[in-house]
Design a protein around this nucleic acid. Structure first.
Lengths: 224, 224
DNA sequence: AACCAAAACCAATTCAAGATTGGTTTGGCG
DNA sequence: CGCCAAACCAATCTTGAATTGGTTTTGGTT
């Protein structure tokens, strides 16, 4: 019988990786096929693959297969994890830290169309016949500001923050008055933010956003 | 033929929503069923549903169905999606916008133990024999600052940002010298940040962090 | 007994085909 | 023209079989 050492299997496997054209996703054939192709027992192949995996050359997962390169990060459950650890006060703290800087970027890069959309959101929010619709337009306003930063990563983080916010402040505006009053504090605060953005005043936009969120926070505390 | 106005259909629909027990997910029957059940044409029902949707009472999506309440945002903080849309420049922009404010919070709330850990990270980074280990301690320093903000949501967002950063800045430390030079610009910048945090100087910490990241950014541009 | 390889089994994942579902178009009937 | 039912469309869900890495069992060889 021909002697095949573990090292020899490893060499064959490395050779295979070096000489074979892998598909775009870097996936290599399943264990069973590869073992036959390399004329090696499956167990021996698995040992070699385990070595390569510990070296970080490949990564593998049941049902998926074996791939070259580094294992892609998956942070799907992140939002849920954040939701469980945090609380409404922390959410407001994060908003106060984060959103003013987003507004500052937005002031630098917002297009005329985006400013127009912000104004539209403000108008629709003021005319909203219900709190639900007011909030919808308020959300869209804040997200438009995020889009205006022209930074898809900042926008992504803002979306994550909002996802957590909605999950955390769950069921707070029950039995509130039917619609926002005409002198609702947010209206003027929104106007100041948008005006500063339109003026390309980064510091002013950040300041106005910070004041707005502080105001929201204080009203939130009052309600508790 | 019996006359059925649009308003009457809307009333029947609202009545149905008020009297019917919906499943947990708030899904209501498909259009075709509901139309038959309410003894109304599908077109007429669609009009009424469109009204409810504009009011925010229900939301709908092809293939999914019609649901009461607000449309859930994609709770998936899909890092991979962000990675595909963004680029290294955006990542730095987001860091410059975000991390200084995290440092500001950290200055307000950091414990003595956390400050000590920051100093330890700085020391280990200076003594690091390889770039890889330097980066490891640099990462830990920045994360400790995030922990010191005492805001788990800020920390979660920072982690998300870092996950994107690692995935995006592929191939950064190729053919670099073996280890960071003793006069590496980051060392003094880190020291300023930590000193400001230890002094409870929020503005100073934010400023020092901003300068540090700008410095990193400029060095990154030089390398391109 | 020790070892090894082949087969069988397991659970996570993918894949494919069909059924649902909101949205749109068409044709018929007043 | 308006209305409505039917057909059609594309996105989504559902279901079951096939794949795949990981584990256990089995049977033979030394």
């Amino acid at each position: 019988m021909i002697e095949i050492t573990d090292a020899a299997v490893l060499t064959r496997l490395r050779d295979f990786l070096a000489t074979t054209d892998l598909p775009d996703d870097g996936r290599l054939p399943p264990e069973r096929e590869l073992a036959q192709s390399l004329e090696v027992g499956r167990g021996a192949l698995r040992k070699a693959l385990a070595t390569l995996q510990s070296e970080g050359v490949v990564w593998r997962h049941v049902g998926k297969g074996t791939f070259t390169g580094e294992r892609p990060i998956d942070t799907v459950a992140d939002v849920n994890a954040m939701v469980q650890r945090t609380n409404p006060l922390e959410v407001m703290g994060a908003r106060i830290a984060f959103e003013p800087e987003v507004a500052r970027c937005a002031a630098l890069y917002a297009t005329a169309g985006q400013v127009a959309e912000m104004r539209n959101c403000m108008l629709k929010a003021q005319q909203a016949p219900t709190w639900r619709q007011y909030e919808q337009w308020d959300n869209k306003l804040h997200r438009t500001i995020g889009e205006a930063s022209q930074n898809s990563l900042l926008l992504g983080l803002l979306d994550t923050l909002n996802a957590v916010r909605r999950a955390v402040t769950w069921g707070r505006l029950r039995d509130t008055p039917l619609r926002p009053p005409a002198d609702h504090h947010s209206f003027e605060e929104h106007a100041r933010i948008v005006a500063a953005i339109a003026d390309r005043d980064g510091a002013g936009a950040a300041d106005a956003m910070r004041r707005h969120l502080r105001s929201v926070e204080s009203h939130m505390r009052d309600r508790l």
